[in-house]
């Protein structure tokens, strides 16, 4: 889609939306938001950019393969669940501690895992389209 307005604004919006997604992720514990919603916003940022500049350009904005994000997300979530075991508490008990004056808890880390997994999975689907399109386009043209 070749509209000047979309092309120009999407670059700004991309950054803004990514920031918003991280913001939503971290405020989620107390205000509306959370890992799932944050991840959807982040995917939205990429989808918007892809509409304006094409999937190939959007893909270049992610330094690693999105499927790796899925793996990392699941690992982070799993590790956050295991922490309690080492303190002799049942699996997935929330453990809260203070890091540089900021209250951090394993549920928040778990939410980061949710964020990464959902983000990676949806982006994999999105970028998969591009890989199909590359050869599909050649065939068509």
């Amino acid at each position: 889609m070749n509209t000047l307005i979309l092309r120009t604004t999407s670059s700004f919006l991309f950054t803004l939306l990514l920031l918003l997604s991280v913001f939503l992720l971290f405020r989620g514990h107390n205000e509306p938001g959370g890992g799932f919603i944050g991840a959807l916003v982040a995917v939205g940022a990429y989808a918007l950019y892809a509409l304006a500049h094409g999937l190939k350009a959007a893909r270049k904005l992610l330094p690693l393969h999105p499927l790796r994000l899925v793996g990392w997300g699941l690992l982070v979530a799993l590790l956050s669940a295991l922490v309690a075991l080492f303190l002799n508490k049942p699996l997935m008990t929330g453990v809260w501690f203070s890091l540089f004056g900021v209250k951090v808890g394993t549920p928040v880390i778990f939410d980061i895992g949710v964020y990464l997994t959902v983000f990676g999975a949806l982006l994999s689907a999105l970028f998969g389209l591009e890989e199909t399109a590359r050869t599909g386009g050649q065939e068509g043209g």
Partner: peptide, 26 residues
Amino acid sequence: FGRNIVNVILVDFRGLDTFGEITVVG
């Protein structure tokens, strides 16, 4: 330790379910 009940349910009270769900999503 969270005021957003929906989020606390998702990541704490029913965290195991959520873990299953994100595995499915992945």
